[in-house]
């Protein structure tokens, strides 16, 4: 009986894995097929000969520049968000100051309320401030959306670090900054990685903020560029899937590399509440 349930579970798991991964494999396959095979009936999973033509067409259309934009925006946004979030997260644990609880609740509320509901007023505000359609717009917005999460993650971690560790370092002859840098932060690596990886996934994958804040083709992010490409070449599925693949590689590689920290971060967060 137990043996049967195990087999059943394994079969279900395998089916679930196929459903999760299959479409991605299909996209990769489409992206390297020649056009005549793309529309073949019945469809073939493994192309008889592979080609990188579709990727070449994306480059010919300048889509790779959007890839670069996405990377720059995401990296700037995530590194500044994690840096600022870590400072705040540390302050919330180790310092007493006025309105501390109110400010903490503000961060938590900012994390809970999705940015989308505020995007329209933000757009008008950015137009007024002269930030609309500038290279600074998206790094600022992405950073703002990631900061509350970074505060939440790092605060939870710092709260679990005994204050004696910092005291010991102070007694051992280190300044407070040195103590935090050499003793507290090395242990915070999982929290920092989780916050950064999550922030990167968010920023890299965003479409809606990007499409509403950027007009110029040369400032576009990759998802927006793909939608525009689709608008002009709607039936060029080979190139579209090639775009899907290059848009998917960075976040999926990042996720696979740091899955332990991401899954751990969310598990701990949920168990601790």
């Amino acid at each position: 009986m137990r043996y049967v349930t195990r087999i059943l579970a394994a079969i279900c798991a395998f089916a679930a894995a196929i459903v999760a991964i299959g479409p991605i494999v299909w996209a990769v396959s489409t992206s390297v097929k020649r056009n005549n095979e793309i529309f073949a009936v019945p469809p073939k999973l493994i192309p008889s000969s592979a080609t990188l033509d579709h990727y070449g067409r994306l480059i010919a259309e300048g889509v790779h520049w959007s890839f670069v934009n996405s990377a720059i925006y995401s990296i700037i946004a995530v590194s500044s968000a994690v840096a600022l979030g870590t400072l705040a997260g540390y302050a919330f644990v180790r310092f007493e100051f006025r309105m501390k609880n109110a400010l903490l609740h503000l961060f938590m509320a900012a994390m809970a309320i999705p940015s989308y509901a505020l995007l329209l007023p933000t757009q008008i505000l950015f137009v007024e401030l002269g930030l609309f359609n500038t290279p600074a717009a998206l790094p600022i917005l992405y950073a703002a959306h990631v900061i509350p999460f970074a505060v939440w993650m790092t605060r939870a971690h710092f709260a679990s670090v005994p204050i004696e560790l910092e005291h010991a370092a102070a007694v051992d002859g280190y300044t407070r900054f040195e103590a935090v840098w050499r003793v507290v932060l090395p242990g915070a690596k999982p929290a920092l990685i989780a916050a950064a990886a999550f922030g990167f996934l968010y920023a890299w994958n965003d479409y809606i903020t990007s499409t509403t804040m950027i007009d110029s083709p040369e400032l576009r992010t990759l998802p927006v560029a793909l939608i525009f490409f689709q608008g002009f070449h709607g039936r060029d599925w080979g190139a579209l899937m090639a775009g899907a693949v290059i848009a998917t590689i960075p976040p999926v590689v990042l996720f696979l590399a740091f899955r332990r920290y991401l899954i751990g971060g969310f598990s701990e967060g949920s168990v601790k509440g």
Binding site: H167, A169, V171, D172, Y174, V183
Partner: peptide, 20 residues
Amino acid sequence: LPPSERDIAMVFQSYALYPH
């Protein structure tokens, strides 16, 4: 004076060893 300038040594109840 801050602790770092007192040239003292301290042993903590929790030992406070640097875990990394």
